[in-house]
């Protein structure tokens, strides 16, 4: 983790002060482990419940008297089958993946260039441009979606994936730019000067020197952008109307909930399958994720 630049404050494992004196084992169990286990149970229970409901047959699902609701007696794949083969779920998954990848690439590209211009090319007012880009992060989507719907409509993008690919960068670019400025700051400027003396052009420097050194930053920004666009809801709800173009979070809420009878089994299967891709993706890059989250706040 030492190569993560945004995390430039020394991470000191604090010696739990209690260890030094009056701490006894029993006291530690009551004050530390029991609360911690309670937190874990509460934070993870909805996921467990999602999983249990997914694999339960309907007879067990709606009968708590004869079955222990916390466990499954006859696990079934019926709900997942129904979701995969009787709905457009695979299609929604592909759309969501495409939108997330598209907007991530678009935001990374523009953020890298912007961060390079602000941090490395340095011009008069570059700090203000950086601040202005960051201020854009403070404009919440909830106050933008109504006029944006109008804009998207005017551009003829309504109900197409491009509406999402082009609007997601409004909240991704500010974050990614700020993160990358932090990374570029940590790369010694002397390296670039050497390359300039050797006759490299600015773009060559960016491609051959700065970018390879900023790879951890790029990964962090990319992961963040991908999960944020996967999870986005309000724009996808407002700008997409046809069933086949919906993203997973929107489709599950609007397409699987029909009438007054809720099919909890397939709803939970949808929620579980929609969460798994980001959860797995996140597990692979967890350190990058944590460092970008905490780094961004410390900046």
């Amino acid at each position: 983790m030492s190569d993560i630049a945004a995390d430039n404050t020394p991470v000191v494992e604090s010696e739990g002060p209690q260890l030094l004196s009056w701490d006894s084992r029993a006291r530690r169990i009551v004050t530390v482990y029991i609360p911690l286990v309670c937190f874990l149970i509460i934070l993870l229970f909805p996921f467990y419940w999602m999983g249990v409901t997914t694999f339960k047959p309907n007879s067990e699902l709606l009968n708590y008297k004869d079955n222990n609701p916390f466990w499954i007696r006859n696990p079934t794949f019926a709900n997942i089958n129904k979701l995969l083969f009787e709905t457009d779920y695979p299609r929604w998954l592909v759309t969501t993946m495409g939108v997330a990848i598209g907007s991530t690439i678009l935001s990374l590209l523009s953020s890298v260039l912007a961060a390079y211009a602000i941090q490395r090319l340095r011009f008069r007012g570059s700090d203000y441009v950086g601040l202005a880009i960051y201020a854009a992060y403070l404009v919440p989507p909830s106050i933008l979606f109504i006029p944006l719907a109008q804009v998207v409509y005017q551009f003829g993008l309504f109900d197409t994936p491009f509406a999402l690919i082009l609007t997601y960068p409004t909240f991704l670019v500010p974050f990614c730019t700020w993160l990358l400025i932090g990374y570029f700051k940590s790369i010694p400027y002397e390296l670039e000067e050497c390359a300039l003396i050797d006759g490299a052009s600015r773009l060559q420097i960016l491609r051959r020197i700065t970018l390879p050194l900023a790879v951890p930053g790029l990964i962090s920004a990319g992961i963040f952008a991908f999960t944020l666009s996967w999870n986005e809801f309000i724009y996808a709800l407002a700008f997409i109307s046809s069933t086949e173009n919906k993203t997973v979070p929107v489709a599950i809420l609007t397409e699987l909930v029909q009438g007054d009878v809720y099919h909890w089994g397939s709803l939970m299967a949808g929620a579980l399958l929609g969460s798994l891709p980001v959860a797995i993706f996140y597990m692979f890059f967890v350190e990058y994720y944590v460092s970008s989250l905490t780094g961004a706040v410390k900046e």
Partner: peptide
Amino acid sequence: LRAIILLPYIVPTVLSAIAFWWIYDPQF
């Protein structure tokens, strides 16, 4: 532990909200 604790934040909010909706079901 730190990785597990972040899970509620990673997962799409709407999907965990649906799980809460089910947890808050009046009958079940």
